[in-house]
Design a protein around this nucleic acid. Structure first.
Lengths: 353, 353
DNA sequence: TTGTACGCGTTATCAT
DNA sequence: ATGATAACGCGTACAA
C-alpha cells in the first residue's frame, strides 16, 4: 500500500507508473476504458484505488473546454425569493437532474443592476457550459448577454420579450413555463360553474409574464360571462390585501376572487374576513401555485391551481443538457435548440371555493 | 478594432503580442499590475479591452491550485427546505459575502445517504477551495469527509457532535450559530414577566442542536418558576399542531406556549383556536425565527425571537474566506481556524403575547 | 522593471 | 491496443 503524500495529490502520471502502463492508457481507463485490454483496465483501476487518485478538473477542463457545470441565475427582488418557496422547489428539481448528469450547479444571485457586469464576465470566462435563468422581465439585460457570448441558456418562465407564439422574436428561445393562461381559465370557469357571477382578479405585477398570462386566462374565461374587474398586486400577502381592499371598494358585490398566487390569496383572505365576509360563503377564493405550506394551512385551506414546479426545474435542466450534448442523435447536428415547453396545471379543490 | 475570432477566445499570449510586451508582463497587469510601468499597464489594459480578453479560469486554477469557488452543502429533508425560508435567507447572505470576495457558490444538495459518496468525490477533486455546511445531525458523515480530505469547512448551526463548550471534540470546529439558548430563555422570561405561570414548550426535533438548545433555554428560564411541560414537534405547522393538541391533553390549564419556531407556532395557533381558546387572551404564544412572512402575517401576528439569518450567512462566508486567505496577518501562519461565533437574538413583540 | 522558460495535469493526435 | 508527445492557457522562479 503506497500512502499518498499529504499535500500533493497523485496524478494520472503516478497512476500510470504504478500500473506499469503509459499515461495515455491510464487516461483511457479513467474515461470509460474503451479499447483497452481487460487485464490492463484492472491494473489501472487498482492503481487508482490504491493511490486514491481523483482527476484534476481544471486540467481536464483546460483541454476539453467543458466544465461540467452550469449557472443558475436568479434575478428576483428579495421579497419574492424569501416568501415564495417557488425558487427552492425549482432549484431542487434542477439540482436533481443536474446530479443525474454529473453536472454541478453554480448559483448566481443578481441583486443590483450593476451585477450584470459581473455575471457577464463570469459567463464569458467559461466557468460554465450553460445557464438557467428565471422569470425575466421585459427589459432584462440577460438575454442580450447570453446571446452575445453564445451561452446556451434555458429560461424558467416565458421571458418578457417573447410573445408566446413561438414565432418572430421568439425564434430559438428555449423556456419552460406552466400553462398559466390555461390554469387561470380553468380556475375562473370553475368559479362560474359554482354559480359565481361577480368574479374579480388580483393580478401579479403585469411586467411578469406569469402574471400577464394569468390575467389573459381570466379574461378568456370571463369574456362571455360578465365585465372584468381586476387590480394589480405584487405577489405578496400585503399586496394581495391592498388589491382586495381596492376591489371591494370598487364593487362591494364581488362574490368570487381569483388571486394570481397563493400568497396574495392569503392577504385577500384577511381583508375579506376583516370586512365581515365569509369564505367561501360570501366570497369564493381561488389561488395559484399550490404553495407549500401556505395553500394547505390557510384558513380555510385554499382551492388553487397547482403547477409542478419541481418538474419544471428538472425539465429546464434536461433541455439544457440536451443542448449541450447535441441532442438525441448524439450530436451529429452539433448543438440543438429544443422548442419551449408548456407544462400542465391542475385545479386542486380545497375549502375556499 | 480587431474582432475576436468567433469560437476561439483570445489568450494572454495574444494580449501580450497586441500590446507589444511579454506574456509575463501581461499576466502581471491582469493580476493587479504591481511593479509594471504605468504606460505599459495602459497598453496592456487597452489590448485587453480591444481583444475582449477574459482569463481562462481552468488554466489559472491549474497553476495556482485555487478555484475561487466554495461549496454550499445543504443536507436537509425536503419538507424543511421548502417550508422554511431559513435556507434561502442564509444562502443569500452567503452569496452576498462571496460575491464581495469574487468567489463563486457551488450548490450541493444532499438527498440520500448515498449522495455523500458523490459529495466526497467532488470535494476531493479540488473543484472548490472550501465548504459551508448546514445544520448537521449527530451522525452526519460530512465532518469525517471534510476532515479526511482536509477541506476547510464552516458549519451553519452548531453541529450535532459538538458540546457547545468549545473544548474537547469541538476543538478546531468552526461554526456560526444563533444564541438559541439565550433567545429561548428571553422568550420564556418574557412570558413569566407577563404573569404567565403554566408555560409549555413545543420543541423541534431534538436531534437538531437548535431545537435542543432552545429546550435548554426554556428549562433555564423555567427552573425556578414551575414544572416543565413540553412535546417534540418537527418544525412544521402540522407537527406544531400535533404537539399542541398533546400538550392541551396533558394539561388543559396551559396559559402560555413557547414554540421552537414560527411554523410550529402557526400550527399551535390553529389548534388553540379550534379548542375555543383566544390568543393571547387565554394563551400567550411566542415563536422563534421571525420567519417572513409567516410571523407577521399570522393572525394574530406572532411575538417571536428574531435571529439575523442573513447575517449568519455572511458571517459563515467571511469566516471561511478568512481561513482560506490565511487570516488577518496575511497568511504568515498559513491557514487559520477561527473560533465559533454565536450571534445575538432579539425578542420581537407583536400581538400573540 | 521586464522577459525567458518551465511546469501545472489532462486529453488528443499520431505513430507504432 | 498501446505509447510518445504536443497542445490547452496561465503563473512565476529566475535571469537579465
Amino acid at each position: 500500500m503506497t500512502e499518498p503524500r499529504p499535500g500533493s495529490r497523485p496524478t494520472l502520471e503516478a497512476v500510470a507508473e504504478h500500473a506499469g502502463v503509459s499515461r495515455a492508457t491510464a487516461s483511457r481507463v479513467v474515461n470509460g476504458g474503451d479499447g483497452v485490454r481487460a487485464h490492463l483496465v484492472d491494473r489501472v483501476r487498482t492503481a487508482i484505488r490504491e493511490l486514491g487518485y481523483v482527476p484534476n478538473p481544471a486540467a481536464r477542463t483546460l483541454v476539453t473546454r467543458r466544465t461540467g457545470a452550469v449557472a443558475v441565475i436568479i434575478a428576483e427582488p428579495e421579497v419574492r425569493i424569501f416568501s415564495d418557496p417557488f425558487f427552492s422547489r425549482q432549484v431542487r428539481g434542477i439540482a436533481k437532474e443536474l446530479t443525474a448528469h454529473d453536472t454541478q450547479l453554480v448559483l448566481l444571485l443578481v441583486e443590483h443592476r450593476g451585477d450584470y457586469d459581473r455575471i457577464e464576465r463570469y459567463l464569458a470566462g467559461g466557468h460554465v457550459d450553460g445557464a438557467l435563468a428565471f422569470s425575466l422581465h421585459t427589459d432584462d439585460p440577460l438575454p442580450a448577454i447570453t446571446r452575445r457570448i453564445g451561452m446556451p441558456t434555458v429560461y424558467g418562465g416565458r421571458p418578457g420579450w417573447t410573445t408566446g407564439t413561438g414565432k418572430g422574436e421568439d425564434e430559438g428561445v428555449v423556456y419552460v413555463d406552466a400553462d398559466n393562461r390555461g390554469g387561470a381559465r380553468e380556475a375562473v370557469r370553475y368559479l362560474l360553474a359554482q354559480g359565481r357571477r361577480r368574479i374579480a382578479h388580483i393580478a401579479g405585477p403585469l411586467d411578469q409574464t406569469s402574471a400577464a398570462d394569468r390575467l389573459s386566462g381570466y379574461r378568456d374565461a370571463l369574456a362571455a360571462a360578465g365585465p372584468e374587474l381586476f387590480a394589480e398586486g405584487d405577489f405578496t400577502p400585503a399586496g394581495g390585501a391592498r388589491a382586495m381592499a381596492e376591489l371591494l371598494d370598487r364593487d362591494a358585490g364581488i362574490d368570487a376572487v381569483f388571486a394570481g398566487n397563493d400568497l396574495m390569496a392569503t392577504g385577500a383572505l384577511r381583508v375579506l374576513r376583516e370586512s365581515g365576509r365569509t369564505v367561501p360563503g360570501d366570497v369564493a377564493l381561488v389561488g395559484f401555485d399550490d404553495a407549500e405550506p401556505v395553500a394547505e394551512s390557510a384558513d380555510p385551506p385554499l382551492t388553487t391551481v397547482r403547477q409542478d414546479i419541481e418538474g419544471m426545474g428538472r425539465l429546464m435542466a434536461r433541455l439544457l443538457m440536451r443542448s449541450l450534448n447535441g441532442g438525441p442523435d448524439g450530436g451529429r447536428h452539433g448543438r440543438t435548440t429544443p422548442d419551449p415547453v408548456i407544462t400542465a396545471t391542475a385545479l386542486v379543490r380545497r375549502a375556499s371555493a
